[in-house]
Design a protein around this nucleic acid. Structure first.
Lengths: 208, 208
DNA sequence: ACCTGAACACCGTTCAAGT
DNA sequence: ACCTGAACACCGTTCAAGT
């Protein structure tokens, strides 16, 4: 049921996930779906919680930084596999058990590493904002492979009117169009910036 | 036209913005809207660009950090005023002139401060990911005022089954429920973390 | 050039009816 | 308990028709 919904959303996008299509995928006559779920919102909530369960939980045996780095990378990978989860997060769902468990483990990792409650709240908000925001930007991009990127950048560059947007033109021509460019690589930079900052804040707090 | 659409989305949400409702707001007979716009996607693109124009551009007279801090705060304020803009960003629009101008000025601020092209790309991706992600989290929260926060936290705490999610329960009881808590305040912490990191990265680069 | 009204192909959801 | 089919109140959009 949830798995069928997830498959449709993965393959053809959230718009393709209609109750009629879901019924079809289940070999069921469309409106019978309501025997199993209360309504569509219910279904979407369940799907979000299901993919949250795919995220690697922070390990107890790693130090906090390693543990949170791994789960953050895993979190982003999940959102890349299931881009629709980014859109759903934003339409205010209430969290299911896998989501709560995930959050609890992240908080626990910080608390056990000696983070104060306020600093734990800061760290949690900063990391998850960054991860969601990055996934959203990535999802918006009209390309994924390097070939597509190059093709798209060429088009944008032509349309860009260099005189009006000189810095955008420069970045596109001299950076985005260079071989090996991949927006996804930007993820690590910002993540490490945040982790560096948290490490520093944690050390400052310990010294008080 | 755009203004009418923005008003409706601001007041009653993106779902309330139907072509029929927009026609009504314009004193026009619904389907006549198509005389002015090609289709709904067109309208939404225009609305996003219109609110982008509300963001304070980085000032030429400030140093890069001050300039980008101001525009980042202004960016978030815009997304708080127009939460629907977060949802629309995520459905892959192609940027209008105000958006391009904004991006160009941010890039220019970094380049003129001596940031290399790769570091400029890093900084841009990190800041905008964080701002969008934060706005998305804020938008998802089912409360805004402190009274609503307290009421909601009480309910969640009761439902939370302390034993299953001890750290979530702790954070809710001893931090979120404390007087003066406001999720919006978390924004500055993460923003400064990123700006600190960028300052350090910029200095390291200059020393090479 | 701008507006109108009826229509079309879709949605999510309800409900009486069947097994 | 599970499924069905017809129906309802909505969408965005098209199109022939008016001014």
């Amino acid at each position: 049921m949830l798995a069928a919904g997830i498959s449709i959303a993965d393959e053809d996008g959230l718009d393709a996930l209609t109750m009629r299509r879901l019924g079809e995928a289940l070999g069921i006559e469309a409106m019978s779906v309501y025997t199993h779920i209360a309504n569509k919102e219910d279904l979407l909530n369940g799907m979000v919680d299901a993919v949250f369960a795919e995220i690697e939980l922070p390990s107890h045996s790693d130090d906090w930084r390693t543990a949170l780095r791994k789960r953050s990378v895993s979190f982003r990978q999940m959102l890349t596999r299931h881009p629709w989860a980014v859109s759903l997060k934003d339409s205010g769902t209430n969290p299911g058990p896998a989501t709560l468990r995930h959050h609890d483990r992240v908080l626990g990792t910080l608390r056990n590493a000696g983070f104060s409650l306020p600093l734990t709240a800061h760290a949690f908000a900063a990391l998850d904002s960054y991860i969601y925001g990055f996934a959203m930007q990535e999802k918006t991009l009209p390309f994924t492979t390097e070939e597509e990127t190059a093709a798209m950048a060429q088009i944008m560059l032509a349309r860009l009117a260099m005189a009006d947007y000189p810095y955008l033109a420069e970045l596109t021509a001299k950076h985005v169009l260079q071989p090996g460019y991949n927006f996804g690589h930007e993820f690590d930079f910002g993540l490490d910036l945040l982790l560096d900052g948290l490490e520093r804040a944690s050390a400052a707090q310990a010294g008080t």
